[in-house]
Design a protein around this nucleic acid. Structure first.
Lengths: 138, 138
DNA sequence: GTCATTGCAAATGCTTTGCAGTGCC
DNA sequence: GGCACTGCAAAGCATTTGCAATGAC
């Protein structure tokens, strides 16, 4: 069993077929699928899985901190299985694909004290936007 | 007439009452409203304005580069009237409010060549997330 | 007068919810 | 066997679109 499923079971999850499949889809590739893509891939292995179940499961994974929710445009959110290592995102403005990247330095350090307005700042995310080789080639 | 309206007229815009009102709402405060909030504030001055017109006008302003579209969560996009000066955002994870901030340094410089994967990178945005004084106080 | 722009309402895309039934622990 | 979890379908937001009427130029 994968580390992910093991951690989930340790937290008292009922290990149903649909949750296993959703976790496997995310755990497999290190890609950033939309909820719909996760559902499609899950349905390959478990045809009767409901879209709502995928949404529920994804939200739970996010709440547990196992998966990150990424919303780059105003369209569908994408889910990032790589929540355990901090990283940033490079997104294609044409097709929406997301790659993980690792910039140097800590973005939090770049925000002066005088610009924090009393916020309790928890984290900083950096999004690089550009056109991927696939889209710029055509 | 505001600078914004002037620029728009220079670009061949038909200056209708509804466009004027939308531009004024954005130009007035330096807040980041959702489309719906813009509509509500526009309707105060021009009750018959349609939601669709607000959406259309906002999209045009974005296309012209006069206004920035900001999508921090998966919910409604917010519109940033301060497109003319580069800045980053500090968002409250509780209420969604956005403040403009100005970190030091250029985030683009922090991304090593080896991590660009052939993308033609256009820009980088930094989002700081935390809890605002208003929300943490209660 | 022309044609861009508006208003309305219906359609769309993504996500959430209510509820009866199922099956994990 | 209890109750968390699922499936289905319907509801809910945010946004877009089609089309006839309007009004800025």
């Amino acid at each position: 069993m994968s580390d992910l499923l093991e951690r989930l079971r340790d937290r008292g999850w009922r290990l149903t077929a649909q949750r296993r499949v959703v976790a496997e889809v995310l755990d497999g590739d290190h890609v950033h699928y939309t909820a719909d893509e996760v559902h499609a891939r899950a349905a390959d292995r478990l045809p009767e899985i409901a879209r709502a179940t995928v949404y529920n499961t994804l939200s739970e994974l996010v709440a547990l901190g196992e998966v990150l929710e990424v919303s780059t445009d105003g369209r569908a959110k994408r889910y990032d299985p790589n929540a355990r290592h901090t990283h940033q995102h490079l997104v294609c403005s044409s097709c929406g694909t997301i790659r993980d990247v690792h910039p140097t330095g800590d973005p939090l350090a770049a925000l002066p004290e005088g610009e924090r307005y009393g916020f309790k700042i928890a984290d900083a995310t950096v999004t690089y936007r550009g056109v991927c080789p696939n889209c710029s080639g055509s």
